[in-house]
């Protein structure tokens, strides 16, 4: 029996070739994982009549952990987003989005090492919208005490467990005194449990400006859903783009690790795209599973391959195929562990 059973959801477009490369690397690290492959996305519509088949949901419910490739959300078809449905079904309230400097990307910052914790289930994403007259649309921004407290508590605990020093609550409570005020109040309450962590708050517009001017000053940020959606992409931009931006959606009993980029269908089957974002998400997953040593080895090998710049994908100036890049990481990992 394998030590870990993980639901693998390759996704759509370039997802399957990316996930295959990532599986190769993770398996080569020696971690004992049985992969359960499941479907998601547009192909499932014809087969199952839904973007997210029940079989996939049941697999995740059983295994409690999944690694997921990118999917395409159809616009204006009336079908619910599979990603949003997954978050709702498993109440994956914490969207964890770390960003850090990757030397090969040659960014202008001296330091960039931020972990963003985006609340993933409420705010103006609660799908409560009405046309309240034929001239006026309204969306309810729903912020709750338990929803706010648990993301703050989660972020502070993650910070403590991972040796981080400072967590800031991002808000606009000076204007939205009830909603963002409640989010901030819950954060301050949760922070009382973590006297060893430095805490504070910052208004979202100032945070955006400070991130662009001097991202090195930030350690961990905890944000309501909408600000988190925007600022986590801004942070990915600081790092050099979504190609290296990993993510995890975590609940109390389940975690789904996935890149935040799209499925790039125009490149599907060409083995051209960079699998790094899903690979780093896989590294996060290994740490989640307690496989820290293997996670560190993969990460170190990936950075070494990127630093050498010989066997890298087109987006970082190379000509390597997706699987060639993965093989180079495996070779580096094996060489490093001799």
């Amino acid at each position: 029996m394998a030590k870990h059973v993980v639901t693998m959801i390759p996704g759509e477009g370039t997802g399957p070739e990316i996930c295959e490369a990532v599986r190769m690397v993770i398996d080569a690290s020696g971690v004992d994982i049985k992969w359960e492959y499941e479907d998601i996305g547009l192909d499932c519509l014809e087969k199952y009549g839904t973007l997210l088949p029940e079989k996939t949901i049941q697999s995740i419910a059983k295994n409690k952990v999944a690694l997921k490739g990118p999917t395409t959300t159809p616009i204006g078809t009336g079908h619910k987003s599979a990603n949003v449905t997954l978050r709702k079904v498993f109440d994956l309230y914490a969207n964890v989005r770390p960003v850090r400097l990757i030397p090969a990307l040659k960014r202008p910052w001296d330091k960039l090492d931020i972990i963003n914790f985006r609340e993933n289930t409420e705010d103006s994403y609660a799908a409560i919208e009405h046309m309240v007259s034929d001239e006026v649309a309204q969306c309810l921004k729903v912020i709750t005490w338990p929803g706010s407290y648990r993301i703050a508590d989660f972020a502070l605990k993650w910070a403590r467990d991972n040796g981080r020093k400072k967590v800031l609550c991002v808000h606009k409570a000076n204007i939205m005194k009830m909603t963002d005020g409640l989010f901030l109040e819950a954060f301050r309450e949760a922070a009382k449990k973590y006297p060893d962590i430095e805490t504070g708050d910052i208004i979202v517009d100032n945070c955006a400006m400070q991130l662009v001017r001097n991202p090195g000053q930030f350690d961990c940020l905890v944000l309501p859903n909408l600000y988190g959606d925007i600022l986590t992409d801004l942070c990915a931009g600081l790092m050099g783009g979504l190609g290296f931006a990993p993510g995890a959606n975590v609940g109390d009993n389940c975690a789904i690790f996935e890149a935040v980029h799209g499925s790039a269908p125009k490149y599907a089957g060409m083995k051209k795209v960079n699998p790094s974002a899903v690979l780093i998400s896989g590294v996060m997953m290994l740490r989640w599973l307690g496989e820290k040593e293997a996670a560190d080895r993969i990460e170190k090998a990936m950075y070494a391959v990127l630093d050498e710049g010989k066997t890298v994908t087109y987006d970082v100036g190379g000509t390597a195929k997706t699987d060639e890049y993965a093989q180079a990481i495996i070779d580096k990992m094996r060489a490093g562990t001799k």
Partner: peptide
């Protein structure tokens, strides 16, 4: 309804 779901 997921048993994990937070309700208010």
């Amino acid at each position: 309804v997921s048993p994990d779901l937070l309700m208010v």
